[in-house]
């Protein structure tokens, strides 16, 4: 951990935070155009964390205690990791109209819809980061991991194959709609080195 904190020193953290903020700004703007509504994306705070610390920090938060549907979308390339999106499915009916579904919404429609939102959210945020840092990233189709469970149960020891990850928590809220979703973006340890290299290039240009 000490080593990792050294790696992500103050300047690099500052640069990454700014890159992430800009990416969120762009993602929010694009999504607002997509949904024709004001989109609020919280400014993510990121932290390097191991699985126990992550579970502890999630369990301590009110919003993660409700039962939720958990989706995952893996991404790979120079940026590698997974986006975990958490939905409280009670708001998904309103989403249907926004996503252009007509007629009665079946469970399958609902699933596809939240998978779409997961893909949009992960893609919009990551593309913004990747393009600023000139890094490549590609995506695998998202999938439903568990339906209606507490998130803390999801992150149990042995359920993931990383020891440390860079974690960003982002909250998406659609104004005038009761819909909101939380996303956890995990950058795997393997991405740390290339990420730091690109941040240093940005910093050197100053």
């Amino acid at each position: 951990m000490i080593k990792l904190n050294e790696k992500f020193n103050e300047d690099r953290r500052d640069a990454l935070q700014e890159v992430v903020n800009i990416a969120m700004g762009q993602a929010g703007d694009s999504m607002a155009k997509l949904f024709d509504t004001f989109v609020e994306l919280s400014i993510p705070k990121f932290h390097v964390s191991n699985i126990d610390q992550l579970r502890e920090s999630l369990a301590g938060k009110e919003e993660y205690r409700e039962k939720m549907t958990v989706l995952r979308q893996p991404f790979s390339g120079e940026l590698e990791g997974e986006g975990i999106t958490l939905f409280n499915t009670s708001g998904t009916h309103e989403l249907a109209t926004l996503m252009g579904y007509e007629g009665e919404i079946t469970l399958n429609n609902e699933r596809e819809m939240i998978l779409d939102v997961c893909s949009i959210l992960v893609g919009a945020c990551l593309n913004g980061i990747a393009s600023q840092l000139d890094m490549s990233v590609s995506y695998t189709a998202p999938s439903v991991v568990v339906a209606n469970t507490g998130i803390a149960d999801f992150f149990t020891a042995g359920s993931t194959n990383w020891s440390y990850a860079l974690v960003m928590e982002i909250r998406l809220t659609l104004e005038q709609h009761s819909f909101s979703s939380n996303m956890l973006l995990f950058l795997a340890e393997d991405s740390f080195e290339p990420l730091i290299q690109r941040l240093d290039i940005l910093l050197d240009e100053l």
Partner: peptide, 8 residues
């Protein structure tokens, strides 16, 4: 000079 580029 802002990253929040939505119309609002």
């Amino acid at each position: 000079i802002s990253a929040d580029v939505q119309t609002q």
